[in-house]
Design a protein around this nucleic acid. Sequence first.
DNA 1: TCTGGGGTCCTAGGACCC
DNA 2: TCTGGGGTCCTAGGACCC
Length: 424
Amino acid sequence: MKAIVDCNSFYCSCERLFRPDLRQKPVVVLSNNDGCIVSRSDEAKKLGVQMAGPYFEAKPLIRQHDISVFSSNYNLYGDLSWRVMETLRSLSPKVEVYSADEAFLDLGHIAPDDLYTTAMHIRKTVEQWTGIPVSIGVAPTKTLAKLANYVAKKDKNLSNCVKVAATREEQIALLQSTRVGHVWGVGWAYAEKLVNQGITSAWDLSLMREEWAHRHLGGVMGVRLIRELNGIEGREMVDPLTNKRMIATTRMFGQPVTEIDDIKEAVATYTSRAAEKLRRQHSAAKVVSVFIVSKEQDYSINFRRGPSMGSYTTLPAATSVTNELIKPAVQLVDQLYKKGNVYKKAGVMLSGLVPDSSIQGNLFEVPSRNGNRFLMDVIDNVNFSMRDDVLKFASSGTSRDWKMRQELRSKRFTTRWEELFEVS
DNA sequence: TCTGGGGTCCTAGGACCC
DNA sequence: TCTGGGGTCCTAGGACCC
């Protein structure tokens, strides 16, 4: 059996933790740059605030109902996420952290009759130790567990935020009561296709043949999906030590940018950030990609899609040293930038990742490498202990016209001394 | 005019997730 | 006026190899 533990309205719950006056009140949290709404409390959902909708569109509704609004505070959410995951690790031998607010647990060692009490115990412990409310779905496969969790969340009073679907009868009831679009792995495009063919419930989908799924739902992924719905495992637990295969840092600018130097500063800064993530997982990158998005590019159709102005460089040898990555990244900006264009976004991606212990030596390389790695360690240590970019490369600049807007951010209560929560 | 079989690697792009 | 950021996996098709 697998469990999915999912924090309820995670970012909103984090904000409320330090604002008890906002319990039972409508709260929303905005994306970077205060662009759109990425988390809503139940109260805000009931008032009709749409997920991922633009902030400016929701503003009238927000004012009308006096909904509390926060810019995203990733220092706070990151720290609380870590606390939740540590709690789960103390409660279960096998935990796979799936995202900041979700984790899969292997409950294979729990007797079927004890699943519900175990899940309730986990839910209560997490809430008591961290202050974050969670919902839990339990079933033989990850996809069914997600489905159970979806149902548990829909009516929290009825379910106590826990839903166990251990028997086939329970699973069938679950499948029959859920629309196909809510199945994990069925997105917007597939849902439309399926409904057009008369496949409207998760149950309908589970009855489809594997050959059919292979043809219509993305090959082997579709086959796995059907199997998972029928209780046959197609997605196993992922080893928590698995490294990422790609690392990206991308941002909208706080305001449109026209000068190439500003873009280079932004790209250098993003590269530093990406390189830190790279070193944290002890990897080195062989490929550096950069993209810039101009203001004119139409976001209305494909606005979450990749950029159209991108290019990449393959390095002679994989590296995790920031300045060795910044240099090619900034050169790519020279290639991509067109004078006269107004830009609104840029991004850096590192791929071709290898373990940094296995970096191939280069015969012609200057022997400064060890010194560089040492320098990187020092920078990472200082920046981490200060929880800020105290040390950075000059190419990252100091002006930062392009820096993002965060006008409504709460304090970093748990990671900064000077912002600690005060009780008077 | 005739024109194999089998394989690998790479990239672009589509779909999905939170 | 104002629409996030960071990932995953898979497939098709081209280049290239023997």
